[in-house]
Design a protein around this nucleic acid. Structure first.
Length: 859
RNA sequence: GCCGCCGUAGCUCAGUGGUAGAGCGCAUCCUUGGUAAGGCUGAGGUCGACAGUUCGAUCCUGUCCGGCGGCACCA
């Protein structure tokens, strides 16, 4: 008997799959399709075990569904534009394209080595003109539809990466990649009108019943729908001028309108800017507001600042009542109307502001049980339920009724309208980058922004950009941007901004339906394959990528290019792979290979291999280059084979949770592989032992174990509980090892081995093929059917029922499955153990749960 | 502050309204022509705390404690 040799078998089976071309997906009308997709990787050049876990999960699903009779599409591509290529170009003088394609070649080999059942004929990279040219084509379609526009506005500027960021890419006031504190700058930017779809994207979440609740909730919060009233406060003294009849305000609390004691506008509100132009004091205040940082800590601690403009407006329900207009630093220009009315009694921010600037505080919501004569709001605003008072026609109403009444009155007066406002902003897609998809626009002094004609697409990047300086290499290129205007033929300049790389990843799943199609998306192929049935990726994309992809899908559907509303019917967000960290006494990080770990008693101690000095073992954290705790799948493959690595990353933790990479864990998986292999390997050279009494019983037990295992593993894979599935494989292998190999058990053993090979196949496909051929099968296990189970065998026909007396386990009885309570009670009362236990006690009640347990209440 | 998730053996984690489990680690023993290996056996748990519902709660409900994540001056 020989140990399993992955170095020989793994490449052999990968070659067999490739030469038989078994994973190529073709449209087969009438056969149910299943589209499995993992979020495509950025080609950084190296594959780590986090990638391996992600793609192993997708591969388990793909192989399982294939065995279950589905026509499976499982493609792979590259999210290939982005900043690291520019950095490499700047540092090493290589072209971003060369660097990227070299990395792709390396990562493709690494991925292939994992034995993934991918249709490589569909491979695509977003940096190829064949891909981004089609992206330009649909961008222009959306432009024609009015879903793309250009606007001068304040943008998030990342001073390190020297580019604009979308709101979604600013995390706690810092750039999502650079971690630099983001500045606000005024720039002319292209936007995609995602806000047109805010309601649809929110409502669509309801249909995504195979998405994690967590992700749906995060998107719901991000879209941030609120119901309220948009109303106008008329200027009291004609300040507004002819074109403006009042100051527009948005509120979700129209019921508290009579508690208004001031209005506040954002520092960049048009009225503030107009006043600033006239009065230096206003200009100074506005400038002061802009100075504050945008980090979470800054905002948290920022003191409320206000400036009384002297402008007065009238209360819309009581024109005699005048309210002052302030400029306030806590009012945001890009939410609602950029102006609020302040009701200090019932809003904490307004109350802080009113106390600081000594403005009136008038409560208008009376909590139950409070006396209106003495109820006061001091330092804490009252935001709970109650009845409205001090509010004329709203008096006596509950809050919801008062809201409706206030909206109705405002609408009747023609001073406003009930309105829905979203937190979601339009998606700014302009990036000042050279290595990205050029925005297909030509700027002409005479004609303005002109779309590049279809015939001139794709607008390709020049091959000779200079990345030796920071900033936009495309804008710096000497000749590329100079073209004739397609409208008037005059000299014009190309748009030199490129599209956010999230645009690239917002539609690739649709292009996979037919990546060679001359059209943007081949409609027959898309109709067959889409939507993606199972999408798998990191939780970090819960709002960014997943929201953009949903939006683009809807926009393309409205353009007639797709027939689905949601791109991903099922979503699974997998956890990360973590690893311990190791540091020398001087703080220097060490790689796992550089450390020798020994157990001393219950403790684990680590020493540096080179100096033998003690090393500090740190908490397991996400693998990162900076902490040097990265493990490459290749290293594991050399020692134990990729099947062991695949098994381990899926076995130790539920797929949605983080898994800690340990060498002990991989060794455990390696032992499982050898135990499995040992059961098959004996077939070749060992004659069965002579029959012995009791073999028939062992054979029956094994058959039960087999059918139980098939049922349990099938259910676990369906439910995305891969760790459970592997745990059941461990149990099944133990049962198989316990069954002697004799003439009487031969049939049961053959059945068990045939099932085992196929159950293992999604997780350890190379091993499974080797087992399959050892069984004498001629076809590939990659194409074999999933095993079936017999429910009669999967369930025991005799049950062991624990017997409790007063809730404590005191014995057990054996009863046939499905025995009635009376039958079970009879068995219990005849059991010597129980009779002894019941001496001196009176049984008051007998509870029998069928096939589960018996409880005697006695005293 | 609001929302969500998690807390089970030394470690990493399954699981269930009814017998508390796996892998690794640890201990003992066996094997020493599967050998930088293999195997048997075992110890180890008030299932985060308290209360409620129940014949029975690790599981359901509530409160609290601890850890993690998302959102956050959004009117």
């Amino acid at each position: 008997m020989a140990r399993y040799n992955p170095k020989e078998t793994e490449p052999k089976w990968r070659a067999a799959w490739e030469s038989a071309d078994v994973f190529r997906a073709t449209i087969r009308p009438g056969k149910p399709k299943y589209y499995v997709l993992e979020m495509f990787p950025y080609p950084s050049g190296s594959l780590h075990v986090g990638h391996a876990r992600n793609y192993a999960m997708g591969d388990v699903v793909a192989r399982f569904k294939r065995a279950r009779g589905f026509n499976v599409l499982h493609p792979m591509g590259w999210d290939a534009f982005g900043l690291p290529a520019e950095n490499a170009a700047a540092e090493r003088g290589v072209s971003p394209a060369d660097w990227t394609f070299d990395n792709i070649a390396r990562m493709r080999e690494a991925l292939k080595r994992l034995g993934l059942s991918i249709d490589w004929s569909r491979e695509l990279a977003t940096c190829e003109p064949a891909y981004y040219g089609r992206q330009q084509a649909w961008f222009l379609k959306l432009l024609a539809r009015g879903l793309v526009y250009r606007k001068e506005g304040l943008v998030n500027w990342d001073p390190v990466d020297m580019t604009v960021l979308a709101n979604e890419q600013v995390i706690d006031g810092r750039g999502w990649r650079s971690d630099a504190v983001v500045e606000r700058r005024k720039l002319n930017q292209w936007f995609l009108k995602i806000t047109d779809y805010a309601d649809a994207l929110l409502a669509g979440l309801e249909t995504l019943d195979r998405w994690p609740d967590k992700v749906r909730l995060m998107q719901e919060n991000w879209i941030g729908k609120s119901q309220g009233l948009r109303l106008t406060f008329p200027y009291a003294d004609g300040v507004g001028g002819d074109d403006i009849d009042g100051l527009a305000v948005y509120t979700t609390r129209p019921d508290t309108l009579f508690g208004a004691s001031f209005l506040a506008i954002a520092p960049d509100h048009p009225l503030a800017e107009r006043l600033a132009a006239e009065r230096p004091a206003v200009a100074d205040f506005v400038a002061q507001c802009r100075k504050g940082g945008t980090s979470a800590a800054d905002i948290e601690s920022a003191e409320k600042l206000g400036f009384d403009t002297g402008v007065l407006v009238s209360h819309p329900f009581d024109l005699q009542k005048k309210l002052p207009v302030w400029i306030a630093n806590f009012v945001l220009m890009d939410y609602g109307t950029g102006a609020i009315f302040g009701c200090p009694a019932h809003d904490q921010r307004d109350l802080d502001f009113a106390r600081k600037y000594d403005l009136p505080v008038t409560p208008v919501v009376l909590p139950a049980g409070e006396d209106p004569a003495v109820f006061h709001v001091k330092q804490t605003a009252y935001v709970g339920p109650g009845r409205i008072y001090n509010s004329q026609f709203l008096d006596g109403l509950e809050i919801e009724a008062a809201k409706a009444a206030a909206v109705a009155r405002t609408e009747a007066l023609g001073r406003g309208v009930g309105a829905t406002v979203f937190r979601l902003r339009d998606w700014g897609v302009s990036r000042q980058r050279g290595w990205g998809c050029p925005i297909p626009i030509i700027n002409c002094a005479a004609c303005g922004a002109v779309a590049v004609p279809d015939a001139d697409l794709p607008v390709t990047l020049p091959a000779d950009m200079d990345f030796s300086h920071p900033g936009n290499a495309l804008a710096r290129h000497p000749t590329w941007k100079h073209v004739a205007c397609p409208g008037c033929g005059g000299a014009a300049i190309r748009e030199t901004d490129t599209l956010d790389t999230f645009v690239d990843s917002s539609w690739y799943f649709a292009r996979f339906a037919d990546p060679a199609a001359p059209e943007v998306i081949d409609s027959a192929a898309a109709d067959y394959w889409l939507p993606v049935d199972q999408y798998i990726g990191g939780i970090e994309h819960a709002v960014l990528h997943l929201l953009y992809a949903r939006f683009v899908t809807r926009a393309l559907a409205d353009e007639g290019m797709l027939n689905i509303r949601e791109p991903f019917a099922g979503l699974f967000t997998q956890g990360m792979v973590t690893h311990e960290t190791y540091r020398r006494q001087n703080g220097e990080w060490l790689e796992p290979d550089e450390v020798e770990i020994a157990a001393e008693g219950g403790d684990r101690r680590a020493r540096a291999r080179d100096t033998d000095e003690p090393v500090v073992i740190g908490e397991p954290v996400k693998m990162s280059k900076s902490k040097r705790n990265v493990v490459a799948p290749e290293d594991i493959a050399d020692t134990y084979g990729v099947d062991a690595a695949r098994l381990f990353v899926l076995s130790d933790s539920p797929p949605e949770r983080d898994v800690q990479w340990t060498s002990a864990g991989v060794e455990g998986a390696w032992r499982l592989i050898n135990r499995i292999w040992a059961e098959f390997d004996v077939l070749a050279d060992e004659a069965p032992a002579a029959a012995e009494p009791g073999d028939e019983g062992a054979a029956t037990e094994l058959r039960r174990a087999t059918h139980r295992a098939v049922k349990a593993v099938t259910d676990a894979i369906e439910g995305f509980r891969f760790n459970s599935a592997i745990a059941r494989l461990y149990e099944f292998v133990a049962a198989l090892r316990a069954c002697p190999s004799t003439p009487s058990t031969a049939a049961a053993r053959t059945e068990a081995l045939s099932a085992l090979a196929r159950l293992v196949a999604p997780f350890a496909p190379h091993l499974a093929e080797e087992c399959w051929v050892t069984l004498g099968q001629t076809g590939l296990i990659a194409l074999a059917d999933w095993p079936r189970y017999d429910p009669a065998l999967a369930d025991d026909d005799e049950k062991v029922l624990p017997v409790q007396i007063n809730g404590k386990r005191r014995g057990e009885v054996r009863a046939p499955a499905g025995a009635t309570p009376l039958e079970v009670e009879k068995l219990v009362r005849e059991s010597p153990d129980i009779i002894k236990r019941l001496e001196g006690l009176t049984v008051r009640k007998v509870i029998v749960v069928q096939d589960r347990i018996v409880n005697l209440v006695a005293g």
